[in-house]
Simulated assay, not measured.
Amino acid sequence: MDERYAPQPVAGWFKFAAIAAILFMALGCWGYLMSVITDPSALPLDQRNLMLARPIWMIAAYALAVWVGLAGAILLLMRRKLAEPLLLVSLICAVLTFLPYAVVPAVSDLVTTNDIAVAVVVVLITATIYSFARHSRMRGWLR
């Protein structure tokens, strides 16, 4: 716990927010599973090309972002301090997941405005969840 803050009673909204974080991360896990089990040949040409252009490190970052994020969100609900560093790893990996949109020409040539909007929203929500965990630790809500 941060020495600047005395432990405070856990806010009534804490469980609701932690459950929302779990649901968001679980949705990410479902999306990851769908992306790795989908046969690219079953997709429209534009989506197939984007799926095939993804570098392996992008897929690995995606896996880490969602699975570590889910573990962190569950630990957040359990009020464990380990939630904060796990959610930071999830945030960093979420940024790495979408980095190819800007730096890998084979990917950046294929992304749409909608893809970029989804990436921004996902990173912002993940950052909010991490901030929630940090706030919770600083308030003394995590043990």
Rank of each mutant, 00 (worst) to 15 (best):
L70Q: 04
V122M: 13
F98Y: 14
L87I: 04
P55N: 01
L43P: 00
I92V: 15
C29T: 03
I22W: 04
V89C: 12
S108K: 12
V121M: 09
L64P: 01
C93S: 14
K15V: 02
L45R: 10
R4M: 09
Y5W: 14
V118C: 05
V118D: 14
G72C: 06
V123D: 11
A17N: 00
L88K: 14
P9N: 07
W13L: 13
H135G: 00
S41V: 02
N49S: 12
G12P: 00
L64V: 13
S136E: 08
I116C: 02
L87N: 11
I129Y: 03
R139A: 09
L43V: 03
R139Y: 03
L64I: 15
W57C: 07
F132T: 00
A18K: 01
T112D: 05
L23T: 03
C93H: 02
Y32P: 01
D2G: 02
A73S: 11
Y62E: 08
P55K: 01
P105V: 08
A20N: 06
A26V: 11
F14L: 07
A117K: 08
L86D: 04
D115N: 11
G69E: 07
C93P: 01
V107F: 10
A6G: 10
R54S: 05
F14V: 02
L110Q: 13
A53R: 09
S90R: 05
V103A: 12
Q47L: 12
F98G: 05
I125Y: 10
R79C: 08
A63L: 14
V10A: 07
V68C: 13
P7L: 14
N114T: 13
F14H: 03
R79F: 03
L110V: 07
P85R: 05
L75H: 01
K15L: 05
L27P: 00
G140L: 10
A26N: 03
T126G: 07
M138E: 13
S90E: 02
L52S: 09
V89K: 09
W13R: 09
D2L: 15
A127N: 04
V121R: 05
P40R: 10
D39W: 01
D39C: 01
I92T: 06
V66R: 05
W67L: 10
P55H: 01
T112P: 02
I22G: 04
K15H: 13
V121A: 14
L124Q: 12
V121C: 11
W67C: 08
T112M: 06
F14Q: 00
M25W: 04
R137F: 09
L142W: 11
D39M: 09
M1V: 11
L45C: 02
A21K: 06
F16K: 01
F14T: 01
